[in-house]
Design a protein around this nucleic acid. Sequence first.
RNA 1: UGGGAAGUCGUCCAAUGGCAGGACACACGGCUCUGGACCGUGGAAUCGGGGUUCGAGUCCCUGCUUCCCAGCCA
Length: 563
Amino acid sequence: MSPAARKSGAAPDFIRGIIAGDRARGRHDGRVGTRFPPEPNGFLHIGHAKSIVLNFGVAAENGGTCFLRYDDTNPAKEEQLYVDAIARDVEWLGYRWSGRRRFASDHFERLYEFAETLIRRGKAYVDSLSAEEMRALRGTLETPGTESPWRDRSVEENLDLFRRMRAGEFADGAHVLRARIDMRSPNLNLRDPTLYRIRRLRHHRTGDDWCIYPMYDFAHALSDAIEGITHSLCTLEFEDHRPLYDWCVRESRAEFVPRQIEFARLNVSYTVLSKRRLLRLVEEGVVSGWDDPRMPTIAGLRRRGAPPAAIRAFCDRVGVAKRDSTVDVALLEYAIREELNRTSRRFLGVLDPVRLVVENFPEDRVETFTAVNNPEDPGAGTREIPFTRELFIERGDFLEEAPRKWFRLSPGREVRLRAAWLVTCTGFTKDADGRLTEVRCRLDPASRGGSAPDGRRVRGTLHWVSARHAVPVEVRLYDRLFRTEDPGRDGDLFADLNPDSMTTVRGQAEPAVRDLGPGDRIQFERLGYFVCDPVDSVAGQPVLNRTVTLRDAWARIRKRQRR
RNA sequence: UGGGAAGUCGUCCAAUGGCAGGACACACGGCUCUGGACCGUGGAAUCGGGGUUCGAGUCCCUGCUUCCCAGCCA
């Protein structure tokens, strides 16, 4: 489990407790084997990340193995595109699966043999009912089902029919193989569930080798048994499939007996995580694709600028339990900020520029200041920033009439220009529409580097860019995709979309941003964390995606004052 | 009027039958050349009703609420 055998930050949970108990009792000789079993019919999302972190984490902690196994038993929905995307995302998250990638389809022949065993033992039969007829006989939640008229075919007839199903003698839907369990079971999953269906579809791996495909319950349980999975971790909705899981393993006479354990799937406030709904967002063009930075997909989070370590930390903090829960998206944002604060280089960039003229600084002079790249990491070094008479500052950092707690620019007020000088506002100009066009100031020649010689306190520090040296950058400001905590709860998912989930601005940044490469994650001081978009950036002309804002104390004060 | 599962601060996760704790969020304060980060303080919870016990979030009974299940999807 080499590089991914990282120290997990996860707290002990009930699953780890069960596994520790199993090992203590010498079950499976203390060996632990898990698997992450995605269906390749969509992109992985943050909910899958929870499962990945759990499965790989538990295996690593116990010196065990974790397989990546695709549950590819339904050729109608599965595609190679998704197979590749899934592998890439798992690797990007920082995990290495044991050995080669696995596919349920690797086991089709073995699974077929297990099915024949079932038939020979009188535990499965070929049913010739239509899907509708079968549904009618299944009964309801509260009333028992009725046995199919084909339920008592002889072993010989069943075997013959099943082999002919495989041989392609029948049309799609003509027959299915069913488990022979109990049509009166209160657990609907045990009312003779379908094990195999005929589907004349090209499979992304086995091509046209098969025209019958196994169903999930059968294929998953026995794939686990074949692969020696000791602990098969899945989500709560499979809880009442567990009797069927155990039945398949037992009645097929599999030599290895895995154990299924269910935990609560992840839900996150202000986002949706169902494949169906994510697919809708993609197909209806609400977002630009599976990797749109507003998507909760791994690909989306990556393009948004979230580091894999942050996603792992988030999953560890979320914990593992059996109760349905919705994690506050603020916890995800916190995990991202925490990681980025430690690791990202700082830059100065102005997103809504207005000109600041330093009246007592000569027109032709260029001064260079040295700025720290990351105050949290001395090893990150420093960089040079040019300073000239005409600068850009943030329009929002000037107020004509400022309140007492305003630590920024306003006539007569003094602020620090980050890493440079202390300046005092001497005036401003507006156009005919009353829009601010320019701010003027004078610097204190004794304050070079930004500290006041007389020790006077200057509370505010502004970011700035030399107008002459500024690099224009396209910046996309992302916000949550939905404006309600539980999107779609009142029916219409689209009605809950946040109209401001993305705005694009033209900013001005310090020269060093020209060196940014695709995927580089930075902080624009006082604004937030940004990533150099790997798709739309060109050399020397970075396009930046805002990952998450910095916490903003002033915004909170303002909000409070409005109330 | 079936079966399965779950109910602990606003949110998420803990607590051999023995002082209900941590994180996020929130509020207040400190510190700061990012109103960032960091540090400190605070408010904040055992679904209800019975019972067992010296002692119950934990055990028993009962009620309530929420989630999942009637694919030839996974």
